[in-house]
Nucleic acid binder design. Sequence first.
DNA 1: AATTTACGAAACGGGACCGTTGCGTATCGG
DNA 2: CCGATACGCAACGGTCCCGTTTCGTAAATT
Lengths: 203, 203
Amino acid sequence: MTIQGTGTARPAGRPRSEKAEKAIIEATLDLIAEGMGVSELSIEAIASRAGVGKTTIYRRWSNKEDLVVDALATLKAPLPPLAGVSVRDDLITLLDAMRAESGNRRGRCVMNIAMSEADRHPRLLERFVERAVEPRRRALREVLERGVATGELRPDLDVTLAMAILSGTMMWQSKWGPAGDLPEDLAERVVDVVLAGMAPPAP
Amino acid sequence: MTIQGTGTARPAGRPRSEKAEKAIIEATLDLIAEGMGVSELSIEAIASRAGVGKTTIYRRWSNKEDLVVDALATLKAPLPPLAGVSVRDDLITLLDAMRAESGNRRGRCVMNIAMSEADRHPRLLERFVERAVEPRRRALREVLERGVATGELRPDLDVTLAMAILSGTMMWQSKWGPAGDLPEDLAERVVDVVLAGMAPPAP
DNA sequence: AATTTACGAAACGGGACCGTTGCGTATCGG
DNA sequence: CCGATACGCAACGGTCCCGTTTCGTAAATT
């Protein structure tokens, strides 16, 4: 029994190629980021894009959904660190992270999956919510609840509704806002309008 | 030459069945409302659902996109009448119409198309924006601009941003809000929070 | 009645993918 | 070197859908 450094026995024969594995994942993410729906993704297209035989894919994943789930799992979700000083600053930090992500491939993957594949792929949706949605939701809720506690926000604020307002606004901008990148000060403007309200200050 | 009452010459032979035409459109809308993407829609599925031969479809539309465009065109977009008294009331009326639509078939069609098929079907998207998006966008903008003019809203309000906040919030609720119907007072609560802002009133 | 067109159903050849298998080659442990 | 496993590639039979054609029937005009 040959013991590897990791303690796992190394099976005989040629080891699986990490390069191929990465290429498969990358090809999958690329196709999703380009707007290909999960239902339209074909193993053959992924294999071709990755420069890999179909066999190499089927040897690792038994079906398309498993592959997509694993591919999405590789998308790190680096939540920005929050200064924790003012609620306004933390909200801007969170919303600006959303803005920045709408421009890169990871963000496009997340957005496309969230938008279109929500139904009809329950396992995928579950994994996706767990990795991409929940962490942000939690962070946002904590900032808002802290604001209510410290008096920076109205004591009667409906935190859940506030989350919908902030997230929904950024999502709307990503999807139907101006073409190309979103303006750099977008997050700040959104937070300021939502904090201050649209009505004029009482006289 | 036989002239019909409408003034159009009636061609010889059996006339096309209006019933079949309606059934085709209905089947198409049903499938879209159920979450079927335009790319996955198949003529055969529509024909089967409509109880119609494929021939009957191809005789009327030369391709799937034309059919979907016509089907979407039958979705009336009844903008609610606006009282025009207070900006708050008009905003609630508009947002509540969005809320109500998220529950019916028409609304689900609009939402699904907007979410997933935005890219890759430019003609469809164009028609869709023209019929479903623009009228609402215009109405919302007019209410907000009137509010700025009358002083009911802050004079420095970014109207475009305000539109994104209001629309995005409702869209977010439709897509990721509580399962089932949205609460009846949702529109009112959204408008009040957005009008007043989340920060506490200045002392 | 004769003609013309539409109808639903079925079948066609063609193409895209499916998931599997066989092939010759490459890369590992022993 | 040898056995074992992975690799890319090509081919397979199968399914779904395409867009077209054919067929027998139905519904209109003349």
